[in-house]
Design a binder for these strands. Structure first.
Lengths: 214, 214
DNA sequence: TTTATTTTAGTCCACCTGGGCAATAATCAT
DNA sequence: ATGATTATTGCCCAGGTGGACTAAAATAAA
């Protein structure tokens, strides 16, 4: 009893964009909506719409909602590692303390560009879902091990406050991320756009001043 | 065509608990679920169930989902103000720097006991909802004004790093909250319970060491 | 060419969602 | 005692949800 002139089923003629572009668009949309509304709050149909695609296609590429979530986060990590590694290489021959300062600044820039990162971490870190375990194992573990190697010698030389490394890492990351994670709040409370280049650098300066003792 | 022996409609005989207790239970449940799953993710029926109440009753006391959310957050603020004000009074005759340290410690304790607070802030701070505006006006504004009055003289005396106050406030709060907001992650990554008394005090020590220069 | 695989879109479903509404006992005011 | 108000429940609804399944064109393989 179909009466409206509906488009026929199936793959449309005139092929659209290449597959990798489609997958990429889906992951990007997923990241945005998961970070804005949480896992349950983000609807797959909405993610599909944002990626300009039908909702069944999302389930074709990523069979589950959970699978989609994991794929989106995996991409986030790859991006972050690439960003930080690039910055790390460009400071190759500098003295360790300067190198650390540059890395901090680089991390602040990353936080500004990818506020979804911290937001998703917070959203998932409480519930009983197995997503927490996945995050802890895939992301937090490696990241903290790397940070420990970086921070310990600096602390031994007195450039950092002498506190348990674990606590320092959590304070450091949170302090770097916070104004960008809460950018909407800052905008409403202060009328300031945290994504402004000058604001980002100002915050990097503040973080360095807070941490480093030289 | 009802065939099962269903309980009759209406208020049940043998009155249950007093109203204020019911309302309180609802707000508590709401706070828990909103913080764990976000505004959209938390279902009113689930909130009701957690409060041991039928879902229509939630809508009787708090007509909207949005209204319920506001009521829950309002209660959170009242609790926080009470907690912090109490601590503030007990340090009455101490020198300002000691008083500030004690306040920091007290704030860390509050963060440990109420991780929902920070989690909800993060969850709402991005979307376009009017809840962000509400938070900025009702919570962030007053809080930051009070903190500014507290921090400025200490910074002038060189007890704090000389950075823009706004950035300092965001870094300070985030650093205090972070390991408790992410308690689930910490548990998975380090096998440590952040709600343990010793861990809480350890983090307070770390925060004080990070901030204060004397 | 024919055939199999890949990538896309449409449809259906059982379930859950927030909200609306009526029923009803408890409580309070008169 | 009676009538209004308060606090609670049960039930209904239109709309949205994730997921299973089908239809069909594009592409690769034979």
């Amino acid at each position: 009893m179909t009466l409206a002139a509906t488009r026929p089923r199936g793959r449309p003629a005139r092929t659209a964009r290449p597959v990798e572009e489609t997958r990429s668009a889906i992951l990007e949309a997923a990241l945005k909506l998961f970070s804005e509304r949480g896992f349950e709050g983000a609807a797959m149909r909405e993610i599909a719409a944002l990626a300009g695609v039908e909702h069944s296609l999302v389930r074709y590429h990523y069979s589950d909602k959970a699978t989609l979530w994991r794929a989106a986060l995996a991409r986030l990590i790859v991006d972050m590692n690439a960003h930080m590694a690039a910055g790390w290489r460009t400071t190759r021959r500098q003295p360790p303390l300067d190198r650390f300062k540059a890395t901090l600044r680089d991390y602040v820039r990353y936080c500004a560009r990818h506020p979804e990162h911290a937001r998703i971490m917070v959203q998932e870190a409480m519930g009983e879902s197995d997503r927490v375990a996945w995050i802890a194992e895939q992301i937090v573990g490696p990241q903290h091990r790397a940070l420990t190697r970086l921070l310990r010698p600096l602390m031994d030389q007195g450039h950092l406050p002498r506190v348990p490394l674990r606590n320092l890492i959590y304070m450091l990351s949170a302090a770097a991320q916070s104004p960008f994670t809460l950018a909407g709040e800052v905008r409403h409370a202060y009328g300031i756009d945290m994504l402004d280049k000058a604001e980002i650098e100002r915050h990097a300066d503040a973080l360095i001043a807070l941490l480093i003792r030289d």
